[in-house]
Design a protein around this nucleic acid. Structure first.
Length: 478
RNA sequence: GCCCCCAUCGUCUAGGGGCCUAGGACACCGCCCUUUCAAGGCGGCGGCGGGGAUUCGAAUUCCCCUGGGGGCACCA
């Protein structure tokens, strides 16, 4: 009987949840859900300089928005300090770790000297054999020791990685890394090992930037007598210039995507495709992702983040929304942009959602597509020049006013019938009657479908705008 | 400098010795639909980094090179 799957996402709270972190969280979550396992959230906040509560909130908010629900945690490493020092003391007592009184300056010098000699910087173990009296002398000088792990200097450490396969490291290339800082706070490589053990983590799924750290963690875990978890190192996500994805590649914070109007399911779907694939399929509902996800299908090579494909994916999911869902989202974005949304009824928004649904890439796009419904926007100069100032436009506008003033239900289909009839009787090509009307009514050459737009605007406003367009043309025409 | 990882269209990828004349998706370019913009349909452009080796046969296996990425902190 294989033990229950337990995975974790362990971000350090030094900033917002970024795309890379979200992808790691997603793969862990998928793996847990796929195997009926447990997903643990652990906050690695041992870097007290850079960790903030705001970042913790941002991570939690981001994951919640994405729907990556965790089953245990969030656990904070700073709440577990006693446990780490307990294990550190044990290693010290067993002679598997030792105190080091070297100062940062000394270490820096050593590093530089090694580099000058073209050697790998590696701690020279000058503190390994310090006698009790030497140590006492250091203490007396006010020096606070760090604790170093006594790394094995022979043999190899083999990582059986679920993604990368078997990776072999020579132990002699490892050095006696610091487990506990002078202030008593554990370093990452030590805290993870203790945590993953205490939290019974069975599979460590993380970015492959951690692959090089893995042998240190394994060797340390072995010294502590721990069962070593399975590892799966995911390929990195890179920017368009093939370097690690960062702010200079554009938005990397999950929250930024939310604010621009990306749907969480779209981001999830897109992220899942970064490093993982399933046959020829591109669009996956969450349940499908869970059912089909597997570490064996995770690729080994890094993936470049492509905003264009994400945009397309978002459009796909926007089109899958029900009208009430879309309308709800649109209202929030319109409100956030300062549009007076109380101006219209719910039914109106449903209709707006209907005619704009397939025109949106991001939810925020609704603002630029609907602002003119709330008040006149300035005429686009190019539109005025190319469409309105055309021979006969004024005539068309005047006739349209007449037609639209007739008594009939002011509904898209009716409007269309009458306006088409107008084009028919005047012998003007449909295009040349509709485009001027569009510009008159919306101020632009690009708008939602014309007749629906008029319907949503209402008869009075529509006629009023046509009149305003005529006025604009007056001086030139007379 | 040392250690590790990676390498199929511009991008994400399928492919795991003959089914490959290398498939799909995004992007791009045409055409169709059409009152604009979209959406949709159809079509096109475009790739196995290089060199050896194994084999009757290599995108698929092995080696070297090159290129890219990551690590070598009292960061995680």
């Amino acid at each position: 009987m294989e033990s229950k799957v337990r995975v974790r996402f362990a971000p350090s709270p030094t900033g917002y949840l970024h795309i890379g972190g979200a992808r790691t969280a997603l793969f862990n979550w998928l793996y847990a859900r796929r195997h009926g396992g447990v997903f643990v959230l652990r906050i690695e906040d041992t870097d007290r300089e850079r960790s903030t509560d705001e970042a913790i909130d941002a991570i939690i908010n981001g994951m919640t928005w994405l729907g990556l629900t965790w089953d245990e945690g969030p656990f904070l490493q700073t709440d577990r300090l006693d446990r780490y020092s307990e294990e550190a003391q044990r290693l010290l007592a067993e002679g598997k770790a030792y105190k080091c009184y070297c100062t940062s300056e000394e270490l820096e010098e050593m590093r530089k000297a090694a580099l000058d000699r073209k050697e790998a910087p590696k701690y020279d173990r000058r503190c390994l054999a310090r006698s009790e009296s030497e140590q006492a002398a250091c203490e007396a000088r006010g020096l606070r020791p760090v604790i170093r792990f006594r790394c094995p200097d022979e043999g190899t450490t083999i990582i059986g990685d679920q993604v990368k396969g078997e990776v072999v490291f020579e132990n002699q290339n490892l050095d006696d890394f610091i487990m506990v800082r002078a202030d008593g706070i554990p370093t990452y490589n030590f805290a993870v090992v203790v945590d993953d053990y205490d939290m019974n983590i069975t599979h460590v799924i993380r970015g492959d930037d951690h692959l090089s750290n893995t042998p240190r963690q394994v060797v340390l875990g072995q010294a502590l007598g721990y069962r070593i978890p399975e590892f799966a190192h995911l390929p990195m996500i890179l920017g368009s210039d093939k370097t690690r994805l960062s702010k200079r590649h554009g938005a990397t914070a999950v929250e930024a995507y939310r604010d621009e109007g990306y749907l969480p399911q779209a981001l999830i779907n897109y992220l899942a495709l970064l490093g993982w694939g399933y046959e020829d399929q591109t669009v996956f509902a969450p349940e499908e992702l869970i059912a089909k996800f597997g570490l064996e299908a995770v690729g080994k090579s890094p993936a470049i983040f492509d905003p264009a494909k994400l945009e397309w994916m978002n459009g796909v999911y926007i089109r899958e929304l029900t009208l009430p869902e879309l309308a709800g989202h649109q209202k929030s974005f319109m409100q956030a942009a300062g549009l007076p949304i109380e101006m219209y009824e719910d039914a109106w928004y449903l209709r707006l959602a209907e005619i704009t649904q397939e025109r949106l890439i991001k939810l925020a796009d609704i603002v630029g597509l609907s602002d003119f419904f709330f008040s006149r926007v300035p005429f686009d100069p190019v539109a005025v020049e190319k469409v309105l100032r055309k021979e006969g436009t004024k005539d068309v506008l005047e006739k349209a006013i007449e037609v639209l003033s007739d008594s009939f239900t002011f509904e898209a289909h009716e409007i269309e019938t009458r306006l088409r009839a107008l084009a028919e009787t005047t012998g003007i090509k449909a295009k040349f009657v509709f485009q001027p009307l569009r510009v008159a009514v919306s101020g632009r050459t690009i708008s939602p479908p014309l007749f629906e737009t008029m319907e949503l605007l209402g008869r009075d406003t529509t006629i009023e705008r046509l009149g305003e367009a005529i006025n604009l043309l007056e001086p030139q025409d007379e």
